[in-house]
């Protein structure tokens, strides 16, 4: 699939830049061929997982027959279910916190001059740059010394709410910088109080950015493994910890289960992404806001 689309792209490419010579077309073909190869590199291992999730044995030499039984087993797996519920809860709670605090902080950074503003902004970005192992270990020792928190569900929500903050901050501040403040002034001149102005004028303009920020914070929490490894404790088992248990205990059954779960994850994200791309301009936000998710 990747191959077809990109080759087609080659044909449609406007070639203002290139001469019409033979060398040129060879070079151009090489460039496109390479691009297609890279898309394949990105996709090949994922495609392998998807294909192997429908066979009886995780091997290309003797895959056995085609089957849906790998998916059937998931229905009765209560551990899997509870880990999915845990991950959804943690991601949603932490993304809400990150979004509220991030939006407020974005206003502060773009609208006001105050002491330590630069420091505030720098520290607002740091949680996404600190290697996950370090953040996880540091927060683990810290939470262990705070009575009542300990590594737990709560600790994971707190950790992820911090981790999600920079994504909201970056996206929303960028939007606010381009926001025409005279619109707000006009509303105030017409007698609207600050809350009404915010609701009727500001919010509609920044809503897509806020939504994108929430989405990013949510996804980062959902897919995080390394921070949760240190702070989730044994009372909470997010999906990534459940999957890691299956990877390190790599029996044939576990691998087949993992392939099915991984396929469902890819499928879920494919649908969500398609929706997001058609509803809001997600690509615009992503192109400027990448990060690390080191493990």
């Amino acid at each position: 699939m990747a191959t077809e689309t990109s080759e087609a792209a080659g044909e449609e490419f406007d070639d203002r830049f290139f001469d019409r010579g033979r060398v040129e077309s060879l070079l151009q073909g090489g460039l496109y061929g390479f691009a297609v190869l890279m898309l394949l590199f990105l996709w090949l291992p994922l495609l392998v997982i998807i294909v192997l999730s429908f066979v009886e044995s995780p091997s290309v030499v003797s895959p056995g027959g085609v089957t849906l039984s790998n998916y059937g087993g998931l229905a009765g797996d209560t551990d899997l279910h509870s880990s999915v519920v845990t991950s959804f809860s943690i991601a949603t709670l932490s993304a809400v916190i990150a979004t509220v605090f991030g939006v407020l902080a974005s206003f502060a950074l773009t609208r006001y001059r105050f002491e330590f503003r630069e420091i505030y902004r720098t520290f607002g970005i740091i949680p996404m740059i600190v290697p996950g192992v370090i953040l996880g270990v540091g927060l683990r020792f810290y939470f262990q010394s705070v009575p009542g928190v300990d590594p737990s569900f709560l600790a994971t929500v707190l950790t992820h709410s911090l981790y999600g903050l920079p994504f909201v901050l970056l996206i929303v501040t960028a939007r606010l910088y381009t926001f025409d403040e005279s619109l707000e002034e006009a509303a105030r001149d017409l007698g609207a109080d600050p809350l009404t102005t915010f609701r009727d004028v500001t919010l509609p303009v920044i809503a897509p950015a806020v939504g994108a920020g929430f989405l990013f914070a949510w996804v980062r929490s959902f897919e995080d493994f390394i921070r949760a490894l240190f702070v989730s404790g044994i009372s909470a088992t997010p999906l990534t910890q459940w999957m890691y248990g299956k990877i390190t205990k790599a029996s044939v059954d576990n691998l087949l289960t993992l392939n099915a779960v991984s396929t469902l994850v890819v499928l879920g994200i494919a649908v969500a992404l398609a929706v997001a791309m058609n509803v809001g301009n997600v690509t615009g936000y992503v192109a400027g806001t990448v990060d690390d998710d080191e493990e």
Binding site: T5, V265, I269, D293
Partner: peptide, 30 residues
């Protein structure tokens, strides 16, 4: 790329981008 092609390619790029890190790492175990 033109807009239409770009949208398809960026989708193919973003999907692995958003897919769990753990799944991408695991894929190479196989």
């Amino acid at each position: 790329l033109n807009d239409r092609m770009f949208k398809i390619v960026i989708y193919l790029v973003l999907l692995p981008f958003f897919t769990m890190y753990l799944v991408r790492a695991y894929s190479w175990v196989l």
